[in-house]
Amino acid sequence: MAMIEIDGLAKNFGPVAAVRGVSLTVDKGEVLGFLGPNGAGKSTTMKMATGFLSPDAGAARICGFDVQVDPLAAHQKLGYLPEGAPAYGDMTPAGFLAFCAAVRGFKGDAAKAAVAAAVTRTELGHVLAQPIDTLSKGFKRRVGLAQAILHDPPVLIMDEPTDGLDPNQKHTVRALIREMSAEKAIIVSTHILEEVAAICTRAVIIDRGRIVADGRIEGGHISFATSDESGARGTIEADARDLDGIFRSLTRAAA
């Protein structure tokens, strides 16, 4: 059974069709890079996949639990870093992570251990006592990451986890994602295409609310299956370094 199943998700905001029938499944061990221009529907798709937005059509399941029908069971299995890594700004990372642990049912020593492990992995150690509002963008992002991996979830969905990080921090986060990837199903959205070649085993390109390419990345090589607006299918075989060119040729029409 695929750990993330997205089945025909669609969403309209008034007259605007933001997402038009996105389907994909992600298995354990896969890191899916979710790519697309701004406004293509990446965040909206992720919000529906996590159950924050209810779709107009389609369904999303996490470890078999429908996020709309059985949200508590689905959310128990999910670590989610929303767009912009929101957190309660008046709290300290220590307080915020303790809250997340409590909500997730950790008690006493188990809660302390879960928080400590997440703090170590995201290197938050020396800002634990500062209000989140006073932290730099990079630290805020890592607080969001720590929150998402706190309970060692089988499914991770992260909306731009490396946005706003400096090159060292990006490297750390990528290493963290690679390290976790064997045991989890992960979806990562990003605008940094080199990142995809570096950490993802699969890339999906979305444009104007639909998937235009879905491909595997192996040993620096990408095999894409494409489908255009009219439904015509094709394949692209390329070196992972050419992802930039492929991305632009597939999504250029929107610009």
Binding site: F52, L72, A73, H75, Y80, E83, P86, A87, V103, R104
Partner: peptide, 13 residues
């Protein structure tokens, strides 16, 4: 502030 998205995707009713 966007924390609603966080709160509603935590496993609480």
């Amino acid at each position: 502030s966007g924390t609603l998205e966080l709160l509603l995707t935590l496993p609480i009713p």
